[in-house]
């Protein structure tokens, strides 16, 4: 077991454990903090797969911007554990069983195709480096890149219009 396998198992356990803590913690602020740990673990997976640009973008965009936005909204609303709505116990168990069954069915369905066993995701290849991704992005995918700026503009206008104090 070399160092990348140890890192793989460590990051996987970190991601799944933090995700479980995220959905089970009462305080929404703790949920946000656990979700940030999940995002860091996923960024570690990207680095192991030699997708360094996506790892950095994941940290900057998700852990840096989106989660801070969530924290701002939670602190703006002053939510804490007492304002957590009352949950039906049986509904919680039903949801857990449904999610576990979904995982079971998907894994069982994919067991049949795992027979080859030769397909490995390796941390080789230069596709994840910022130079190659930039060349592909600005040569072949420049039109979707520009359209996404229009998407951002419309999202910005929509957020301002929705968040404006109505009368």
């Amino acid at each position: 077991m070399n160092i990348s396998e140890i890192l793989f198992w460590f990051l996987s356990a970190l991601a799944i454990g933090s995700a479980l803590m995220m959905i089970s913690s009462k305080n929404p602020v703790y949920s946000v903090l656990w979700l940030i740990i999940v995002f860091f673990a996923i960024s570690g997976h990207y680095i192991l797969l030699n997708a360094q640009f996506l790892a950095i973008v994941n940290i900057i965009v998700y852990a840096g911007a989106i989660m801070v936005l969530f924290l701002f909204v939670i602190m703006l609303m002053n939510l804490n554990a007492e304002t957590e709505p009352r949950k039906n116990r049986w509904l919680k168990w039903a949801g857990t069983i449904a999610g576990g069954s979904l995982l079971l069915v998907l894994v069982a369905a994919l067991r049949q195709v795992e027979q080859s066993g030769a397909d490995k995701a390796v941390g080789e290849g230069n596709a994840g480096l910022i130079q190659n991704l930039g060349m592909v992005l600005f040569k072949d995918y420049v039109l979707p890149f520009e359209i996404s700026s229009i998407l951002f503009l419309s999202a910005m206008v929509g957020a301002v219009v929705i968040g404006k104090k109505g009368d």
Partner: peptide, 17 residues
Amino acid sequence: LFSIGVTGVLTRRNAII
């Protein structure tokens, strides 16, 4: 991870979570 997300959507009632 996807199933944990689905479980969270089904069990939690806080819109932010």
